[in-house]
Every structure is written in C-alpha cells, then in structure tokens.
C-alpha cells in the first residue's frame, strides 16, 4: 500500500469550514457551546469533539491590506510520530497501512503522555480521558474513499491522494514552499505555502522533545525488561513532565 497524504493549500481556502463540520458529521462528534471572542475562528482550539479546525490569520501588508489566511489544522500523521514513541499502551495508537496514525480508545489508558510527545499539540482527551484526534478517516480510506474533510472541500484547499503524487502536484508556480516533506520522517499532512511557515502558525523545524526520543530509544526497552510496570510508568512520567508533582501537572493544563 502506498502512503497516503493530505495536501493543504491555505491560499485556496475560502474559510467556509465545511471541513470542520464534515469531520464532525462523519465521526458523529457533538457541538461545543461557543461564544464570539472577536474572531470568526471557533471553537477557539481543537478539542475531543473537534479533530480539525481552520485557523484565521490576519496579515495586512502594503500589497494586500486585507490579507486573511485560513489554515486547516489537524494531526499531521507523522512518519516519526512522537505520540506513538511515548505511548506506553500497546495498540492505543497505531499506524494503518496507508500511513495514518489512528487510535483505539479501548486500548488507551488515559495517561495523556502522547500530548507531551506531539510536536504539534494535537492529542485531546474525551470525558473518559481517552485519546481523541484526527485519524485521517482511517475507516474511510481503507474502503478507498477520501477523508470527509477533503471530500467536502469545495475549492481543493484540502486534497487527498498518494503521498508521492501529492508532492509532485504541490510544486505549482507560486507555491515554492512545501511544508512537511522531510520533517519528522515526512508528514502525512503537507502544506503548500507561499510564505514562511511561521506566518501560517507552524514551526519552521518541528521536533519531538529530546527527552521523549531518549525515552523511546533507551529507557522504554530497558524499563520493560528490567523494571515493574509501576516503576516504568513513574519513570516515564518523570521523562515527560520532569520532577513535578501530579497536582502541579494538573494545574498547568
């Protein structure tokens, strides 16, 4: 199976947010009660019932007084996925044959460590503390359908296809900067940018925190061989959050 990917072109997006609703419809996610905070952007952040959202960025300049960018954001389906590296529960997060990072709530133990391992601040947790995030419509793409958000997008701002094809498609005039081609082993969500990624709200060089890489490569195998489960879990907690007490961690959230 060839790896699949989404290509996001913010300049083609009209901010209709059909993608936000199509995702909710396919995944049967209830609405959140929101208020207007002086922006069209709503809900203000991803949540357990919101797997993707449009970020609105006003960027007025001499050349374009009303430049307004609409940036679709969701899980990046990293090849080198920080969430999977740190997750101590086998099968809670898994890769599909299309390259999607999907989840199984029945296997998730609710430790929330994946949130610490993700460079893009994606994982959210439902009322039972189970992982909730975009799964690249893993249930649709295995049947040969495109993801709901890509299917509904009226402008082609979200395109779905073979990752290699998407990469060659994205090399169109004016869209020189392809984001995500090599980062973290190659992202499953690529962006065609006209400007620096940070203007669109993305890190120039996304990276998994060092301590999580260390955990994955050195401590995780050691811990499982030599230590009991409880010791391994507290060691892991230390690696992810540092020497904080549980209450402090809660307060920070």
């Amino acid at each position: 199976m060839t790896r699949k990917a989404l290509l996001i072109s913010p300049e083609a997006c009209i901010g209709c947010r059909g993608c936000q609703i199509a995702c909710k419809e396919w995944n049967q996610l209830p609405a959140t009660k929101t208020i207007n905070k002086g922006t069209v952007e709503n809900p203000p952040d991803l949540n357990a019932n919101l797997y993707n959202k449009i970020r609105y960025v006003e960027l007025p300049s001499e050349a374009n007084m009303v430049r307004w960018l609409f940036v679709s954001q969701r899980c990046m389906h990293c090849e080198d996925a920080g969430c999977m590296k740190i997750c101590p529960a086998p099968g809670a997060l898994y890769k599909t044959k299309e390259g999607a990072v999907a989840f199984n709530k029945d296997k998730c133990i609710g430790c929330k460590l994946c949130a610490a391992g993700c460079p893009f601040n994606v994982p959210r947790f439902d009322e039972k503390d189970k992982i909730s995030k975009c799964h690249l419509c893993s249930d649709r793409i295995t049947e040969g359908l495109s993801p709901a958000c890509a299917k509904t997008c009226p402008t082609g701002a979200i395109q779905y296809g073979d990752r290699d094809g998407i990469i060659s498609d994205s090399k169109k005039p004016g869209y020189e900067k392809l984001y995500g081609q090599a980062d973290l082993g190659g992202l499953g969500v690529l962006y065609a940018f006209k400007d620096a990624p940070k203007l669109y709200g993305l890190d120039e060089k996304p990276a998994i925190p060092e301590s999580i890489v260390f955990w994955h490569n050195v401590l995780k195998p050691l811990a499982y061989i030599g230590l009991g489960g409880a010791v391994a879990a507290s060691l892991l907690h230390y690696v992810a959050f540092g020497p904080k007490k549980d209450e402090e961690v809660k307060k920070d959230e």
């Binding site: 936000q20 959140t32 929101t34 208020i35 207007n36 002086g38 709503n42």
Partner: peptide
C-alpha cells in the same frame, strides 16, 4: 443546528 451555532454563535 448546534454544529452551525458552534461556528457562528453570536451577533458581531
């Protein structure tokens, strides 16, 4: 429709 209300809740 709650989904529409979520996106656009109030007069601005």
């Amino acid at each position: 429709l709650p989904w529409m209300q979520e996106l656009m809740p109030q007069q601005f």
